[in-house]
Design a protein around this nucleic acid. Structure first.
Lengths: 140, 140
DNA sequence: ACGATTACTTTAGTTTGTCAATTATTTTCG
DNA sequence: CGAAAATAATTGACAAACTAAAGTAATCGT
């Protein structure tokens, strides 16, 4: 009834629920900056001064390249990123942050990392226990 | 240094790391059953024999109720769920799994939990503790 | 009993995403 | 070298996932 398998299963279910719920929760940070979740993701992937080729973006986001076109279109029309032809390969276009995009990215990251979210609801003991368990889980 | 805030932050970091290490696995499971990530989420939220009101679904997924209408429409047209009027409150419609939806949900969960689960590495005590903590995290 | 609230739907519109076809540019190799 | 295959980005057509606003029906509060 309370077999280890059962608990592992239950824990996995709960983790899934947690992540799905956070998947919706994190974007609140972006929303306050006028960014959709996906836009946050893109902005996060492009580091200031490090242009990223379109195809690399598609790869990182595991989506169709044609989707990236639209994504970058919208960010570009808001002045957050800029397309540049790649000197090395004229088929390639690289996407880089504008100064404005870079500033927004900084604000976004600050906002996202500012709060550990609902974990604060847990008691100190539970937090410590959770940390230990997760560390064991990840130590590989 | 080991303040409760520190633990919450650390736990958050660890959860994120765990999430990212597992992430590409999740959509693949659903895809093989013809389910989008969001559909997996909905199916996951509805337990067999436990109908869920539409508004509760919107709440759980933190999205607009009108979005749930479309989501359920699509699942219903595939015969996976069914709307029923709530006897208690005639404004409410509850969504329940059909036998087919229930079977698909089982297959989905089995697939998600099937692979060499890092959770299995945990001892029984840790698994139980993790379940309890996550339940507390998600309640309310 | 009646005004406010609640649950769901509808409509209209945007964003995110896929697929198939197109154009321009490498690469590959016979 | 030069023809054929591969690659990078785009376009167009469309589906899915979302929101906002307005509408309908039922229930609640006083």
């Amino acid at each position: 009834m309370k077999s280890p398998e059962g608990d592992a299963f239950r824990a996995w279910q709960l983790l899934m629920r947690f992540f799905f719920s956070q998947r919706e929760h994190l974007p609140a940070c972006g929303e306050s900056l006028g960014l959709s979740p996906v836009q946050c993701h893109v902005l996060h992937l492009i580091e200031p001064g490090e242009p990223v080729p379109m195809n690399r973006l598609a790869e990182l986001m595991q989506c169709d390249p044609s989707n990236v076109t639209g994504l970058v279109d919208r960010l570009e029309s808001r002045g957050l990123v800029r397309r540049q032809p790649s000197p090395a390969d004229r088929r390639v276009k690289v996407v880089e942050l504008t100064p404005m995009g870079s500033r927004l990215r900084t604000r976004l990251l600050r906002r996202v990392t500012a709060r550990p979210l609902p974990l604060a609801r847990l008691g100190a003991d539970d937090q410590r226990a959770l940390v230990k368990i997760l560390e064991r889980l990840l130590e590989k």
